[in-house]
Amino acid sequence: MKNILLATKRLALSESGFVFDPVSGQSFSVNDTGLVILRLAQHQDDIEQLTEQLLEQFDASSVEIKRDVQDFIHRLQGFLK
């Protein structure tokens, strides 16, 4: 989990939601929430703290946010390995 958050540092992020991975050459689209998470992840390698930061910004339960973030990180793990 931690490694994958560290790996997000290399990603080039655009305001539009376009994401480019210069290591693999792959590109991606993310939605607004995905972009927020990637931005936070580039400065934050602790998932608990990342969830805390999202809780401050978004109106949802920590259970819901945690579940969605984990799902997102799993997706990311598949893409950035």
Partner: peptide, 24 residues
């Protein structure tokens, strides 16, 4: 504080492939 929070939408990431990449 709560009133200014944004509504939560589950994050999505989609990889671009050589075809089917068309938002329309």
């Amino acid at each position: 504080n709560i009133a200014t929070k944004n509504p939560w939408v589950a994050p999505v990431i989609v990889r671009h492939s050589s075809s089917g990449m068309n938002k329309f």
